[in-house]
């Protein structure tokens, strides 16, 4: 564990807490894409199947359980909570998840490290996480008056991905056998998807205006 990875994981955790805070405090999930949340739940579900087969550390196990629990509770609120579910912008959240799920599944079958079910599902989760933010970014572009908590949620997610790149550089330099091309390429692509968002986020911050994506 290095400082970049710890910072990345904590930023990821805080982003999820910010989203839960928004839902609790405002009783609203306005501007949040259920499609992205569904995809993240799928990502965690498939990636953390090794919870049952391999013990890495207490930190690792606890974080996996927290990510699984929080992602499913967010989906629960958005789908079933009496008040919150009515604030979901279903008409605006139109991205077709199938267009990213199928290519990621095909890619995982073709490009993986090992022909085993667990490994292919794990690889699928890596590819899927890289593009799972797309429905959220599309919804943000359509949302007038993005609220602060939603903007900060996406900002924290992007920061978490950026910190993971620093972690990989650090590990590449300090751990001779650490090579993960699938994870690195997917991660760099994923971080790239936030570049546009970051530009408008800082523009809004500098000009002291509300965030809006053109």
């Amino acid at each position: 564990m290095n400082i970049f990875r710890l910072a990345a994981d904590m930023t990821h955790l805080i982003s999820i807490l910010v989203l839960l805070l928004k839902i609790h405090a405002t009783r609203s999930c306005r501007g949040i894409s259920l499609k992205t949340q569904d995809l993240y739940a799928l990502v965690f579900l498939f990636r953390y199947l090794d919870l049952f087969t391999r013990y890495i550390s207490l930190y690792n196990t606890v974080m996996k359980l927290v990510f699984l629990g929080t992602s499913f509770s967010i989906i629960y609120f958005m789908r079933f909570h009496r008040v919150v579910r009515n604030t979901y912008d279903k008409e605006q959240d139109t991205f077709r998840s199938i267009f990213i799920v199928v290519p990621c599944a095909v890619l995982a079958l073709l490009i993986n490290q090992e022909r085993s079910v667990l490994e292919i599902l794990w690889t699928f989760s890596i590819y899927l996480e890289a593009v799972a933010i797309l429905p959220q970014l599309v919804l943000l572009q359509r949302t007038q008056n993005i609220d602060n908590l939603t903007g900060n949620y996406v900002f924290l997610l992007g920061t978490y991905r950026g910190l993971y790149i620093l972690n990989w550089i650090y590990r590449y330099l300090t751990e001779p056998h650490y090579r993960q091309w699938i994870v690195w390429l997917s991660g760099v692509l994923q971080t790239g998807l936030y570049v546009d968002f970051f530009y408008y986020y800082f523009l809004a911050w500098r000009n002291n205006q509300k965030l809006s994506l053109p």
Binding site: I56, N60, Q180, V183
Partner: peptide
């Protein structure tokens, strides 16, 4: 490609 050792990341 890579090694499974680095699957210690979240």
């Amino acid at each position: 490609l890579g090694t499974t050792a680095s699957k210690d990341e979240l």
